[in-house]
Write a protein that binds this DNA or RNA. Structure first.
Length: 558
RNA sequence: AGGGGCGUAGCCAAGUCGGUAAGGCAACGGACUUUGACUCCGUCAUGCGUUGGUUCGAGUCCAGCCGCCCCUGCCA
């Protein structure tokens, strides 16, 4: 069990658990579960649930199971059960030996269904799906009872067994709970418990041709595992009476309690599995693990760490009001995480050549550069300095505004860890007018660490032309242009055409050339970057995880 | 309209028996700075959807009203 996550604040679920502990409700036990359906990849919203369930168990000395809710073989695949396990494990949680599947209980569930029939609480209905819908009534009008509702126990038993034996076609009959067709809660109007469905199940194969519905399988699966607190999202609130009915109807010795909380909403993205799948299948993104996706695998490939995601989940809180969290909070969490541990390196994303005219040709020297000012224990490294260097195009302006503390004609700037240079001349392409090179001079007395007392307002990063390597850098922006793209089916029109920008001519300091896939760095003054799996020897690809805060850029906009 | 929920700052979110509105993000000032980063300091609800009521005292209790979300799959 992960030791790290114990919530700092309180939430209503903890209050319930603590009250239960006080009254001895579940014998003082806390046992939760994370119950994904293996029909898609996990996203940051699932991370909230995972952190909640495993976190609660850890905090109260309980356990948390991983259980696949695999009651609908027509939508579920092993690819998903594998990715889900990988994601939960990567997030830092351990279900130990408690990996379960709802399909583990198909036999037990069937036996309970027979028991329900025997006690007159369930019946086989021959109505078609369309007829069942018509008989259900509306929000304001009660439903009508099915003409098959009062079959004898013997007939129901016979029919249900024959359903199981495959004697009837798909959809021809269902097993229904006999509850109340006039209930104001539609979920209680004789809900379907079993349907006939010929579809090969990823675990049970073709053993079954009838499959239990969620509302029936879930409470009984929870009970089978001795779950005490069954935490789910708000939309299941109206299903709670049915959850309790199932446990009561079979007179189960265990009585887990369902508690609902609000699912996570995040600005500038989607959390609907269906829509995320559509983005993948229609090629709007490169896959479930595209770094722009809010999936766990996408965030992982982007370069987010489990620690940052857990911290985020801890900070957003748990409540019952529908909420949409600012994406900036997630960004804050990864910045805080990386600020403490990412090595600083220099990388020039959009290079502009600078020739230092009074620096001897052919000369080079090694300069000391600290790896992380936040953590001196991370030491320092050497950087080569020479006559020709690259600086960021953005760090030079021919006609700068006030308070532009970077390079401009006649202006000085410090090259970080090196010297103060002065821009003497701007070289342009005669035809296009494009700035192709800067001619500068340096002050030899200002070498970093030499005790020079000269100060300039600005310090910029650089890389020596000869002692640098090329790299590709992928810059990411929000997938959508609006805060809430998840309205109806219009979401595709809000896709951000600039969500990905690929820079291929970037120059990185030489030491970085040997970086391995999965390593993270802070590119000084730029942001935090992650070595993508597309990298090959000599052809590094970096993902920008998140940019550094930039109060200058912000001031320019405002 | 029937049922179930929710409404505290731009966004999340604490708020035990009613005792005089935590914290985080964002934003905005300022200090520091060889990262316009980080860090630090300060500002940011006489106000808790709204209207009444009870009370010495109400975000907390009561009543009405308003707004938003969920429920009519043989999906989960």
């Amino acid at each position: 069990m992960a030791e790290h996550d114990s919530f700092t604040g309180s939430n209503f679920i903890q209050n319930i658990i603590e009250e239960d502990a006080r009254t001895g409700k579940h014998g003082g036990r806390v046992h939760t579960r994370f119950p994904p359906e293996p029909n898609g990849y996990l996203h940051i919203g699932h991370a909230k649930s995972i952190c909640l369930n495993f976190g609660l168990a850890a905090k109260y000395g309980g356990k948390c199971n991983l259980r696949f809710d695999d009651t609908n073989p027509s939508k579920e695949e092993v690819e998903y059960v594998e990715s889900i396990q990988e994601d939960v494990r990567w997030l830092g949680f351990d279900w130990e030996a408690r990996l379960f599947y709802a399909s583990d209980y198909f036999g037990e569930l069937y036996a309970f269904a027979v028991q329900l029939i025997k006690s007159g609480k369930a019946y086989v209905d021959d109505l078609s799906a369309q007829e069942i819908k018509e008989y259900r009534g509306t929000l304001t009008e009660p439903g009508k009872e099915s003409p098959y509702r009062n079959r004898t126990v013997a007939e129901n038993l016979d029919l249900f067994e024959r359903m199981k034996n495959g004697e009837f076609p798909d959809g021809s009959r269902v097993l229904r709970a006999k509850i109340d067709m006039a209930s104001p809660n539609l979920n209680m109007r004789d809900p379907v418990l079993y349907r006939i469905l010929r579809s090969t199940h990823h675990r049970t194969g073709d053993t079954w041709c009838i499959y239990p519905m969620y509302d029936y399988a879930h409470p009984l699966s929870d009970a089978a595992e001795g779950i005490t607190h069954s935490i789910c999202t708000l939309e299941f609130e109206a299903h709670r009476p049915l959850y309790d009915w199932c446990l009561e109807a079979v007179d189960h010795k265990n009585r887990p309690q369902q508690i609902e909380f609000a699912r996570l909403g995040l600005t500038y993205t989607l959390m609907s599995k269906r829509k995320l799948r559509a983005l993948v299948e229609n090629g709007y993104v490169r896959g479930w693990d595209d770094p722009r996706m809010p999936t766990i695998s996408g965030l992982r490939r982007r370069g987010y760490t489990p620690e940052a995601i857990r911290d985020f989940c801890d900070r957003i809180g748990v409540a019952k009001s529908n909420s949409v969290v600012d994406f900036s909070l997630l960004e804050h969490c990864i910045r805080e995480d990386q600020n403490a541990r990412a090595p600083r390196v220099m990388a020039v994303l959009r290079p502009l050549k600078v020739v230092i005219e009074n620096y001897p040709e052919g000369q080079a020297e090694e300069l000391e550069a600290e790896n992380n000012p936040e953590n001196p224990a991370m030491g320092s490294r050497k950087m080569r300095f020479a006559r020709e260097v690259f600086i960021e195009q953005d760090d030079f302006m021919e006609d700068p505004p006030k308070k532009f503390f970077r390079l401009a004609p006649g202006q000085e700037v410090r090259l970080k860890n090196a010297y103060i240079i002065k821009c003497e001349q701007v070289v342009k392409d005669e035809r296009t007018g494009e700035i192709v090179e800067l001619r500068c001079t340096y002050d030899p007395d200002t070498r970093s660490g030499s005790g020079s007392s000269r100060k300039v307002k600005g310090t910029i990063h650089w890389v020596a032309a000869e002692y640098s390597a090329k790299a590709e850098v992928r810059l990411y922006d929000h997938l959508f242009t609006v805060e809430d793209p998840d309205t109806g089916e219009d979401y595709k029109t809000y896709l951000n055409p600039r969500s990905l920008e690929v820079l291929s001519g970037c120059r990185i300091e030489l030491g970085l050339a040997s970086a391995a896939i999965g390593e993270r760095f802070q590119f000084l003054r730029n942001g935090y970057f992650y070595v993508d799996s597309d990298s090959a020897p000599g052809q590094l690809v970096f993902n920008r995880i998140v940019a550094l805060r930039d109060s200058w850029a912000k001031a320019q906009k405002g």
